[in-house]
């Protein structure tokens, strides 16, 4: 097989792109398998070392934080609960509100939709103090509910679901009506199965969004039991080592690698659905 010059060029660009994405991760992983002394003296590593089990074991089980109450494993659980809760509720709520906006022709549907849309301009960071005030007045600080609830509304997802529902032909709804489907059944039996792809895609995006939240959990949680992975990245393995101790670079890299796993897993598991839906249109 002969390559044309243009093809060779495009391939080189693609390969460079891949390297650009993969190398930093590989460096982090390789470095996370070395002990702190060699990292300190020799810098970042390209080849694997021998401290893999030690470092990863340390990361998962050592108690950290100021009061030494929380382990990284615990933070992973917290992050997972938070991301799962946010993603699930975001998808459910925005699918349902889009359903209301598209199929129930009430008077103010359009203004309401734009009102929801405008909230895109007001991210959590902008409204962080009012949000904190409300959550703390409700006594929800240091709870999972408090971590999840203020983040479950999503204008983006509502918008995407709305656009998708608008492409579903009216005849389908009419036919379902004649077949005796009420509004609830139409949602469950028709819209949800038809938007499987959308659901998977939205779930992926929202999971990653929830997982990577930093500011909100930082403000919300004073109890270390509720710390999340992303917060921990700043905090863990940095304290208690003043002066003479070596920075625990190996463990920190191990921690970073581990923190990437859950979102990667979610993408890998759901992408099959996602891609399948993209290829075979069911309409």
């Amino acid at each position: 097989m002969k390559f044309k010059p243009l093809e060779i060029l495009t391939h080189i660009i693609l390969i460079l792109g891949v390297l650009l994405m993969v190398l930093p991760i590989w460096f982090s992983f390789a470095t996370s398998t070395h002990d702190n002394v060699s990292i300190m003296t020799e810098g970042m590593k390209f080849f694997l070392g021998e401290s893999f089990t030690y470092n990863y074991n340390e990361v998962l089980n050592e108690k950290g934080g100021w009061s030494e109450e929380v382990t990284a494993a615990r933070m992973f659980v917290n992050s997972f609960i938070m991301a799962l809760g946010i993603a699930t509720l975001k998808v459910i709520i925005s699918a349902m509100s889009a359903y209301a906006l598209v199929y129930f022709r009430f008077k103010l549907a359009v203004p309401i939709f734009w009102l929801i849309f405008i909230t895109l301009l007001v991210p959590l960071e902008v409204r962080i103090f009012p949000s904190y005030k409300i959550v703390s007045d409700l006594g929800l600080t240091n709870t999972y509910t408090g971590l999840i609830l203020p983040l479950v509304a999503s204008a983006t997802a509502t918008f995407f679901f709305r656009q998708f529902y608008k492409t579903i032909p009216d005849e389908l709804l009419e036919s379902a009506k004649l077949d005796g489907a009420n509004s609830w059944r139409f949602f469950i039996d028709f819209l949800l199965p038809l938007s499987k792809t959308m659901l998977a895609a939205m779930f992926i995006f929202m999971f990653v969004y929830g997982y990577s939240q930093y500011l909100w959990p930082l403000i919300m949680t004073t109890d270390e039991k509720y710390w999340t992975v992303v917060m921990g990245m700043k905090i863990i393995f940095t304290e208690n080592y003043e002066g003479v101790a070596l920075p625990r670079t190996g463990e920190r890299f191990a921690y970073i690698i581990l923190s990437m796993l859950p979102p990667v897993l979610v993408v890998v598991i759901l992408q099959r659905w996602f891609i399948k839906g993209l290829i075979q249109t069911e309409k």
């Binding site: 032909p169 005849e171 389908l172």
Partner: peptide, 19 residues
């Protein structure tokens, strides 16, 4: 309600349930 009228309709685009 349409479902209780006991009528059945065949649509121009068939409106089969794709899933």
């Amino acid at each position: 309600d349409p479902s209780e009228r006991d009528v059945a309709m065949v649509f121009q685009n068939y409106a089969l349930y794709p899933h």
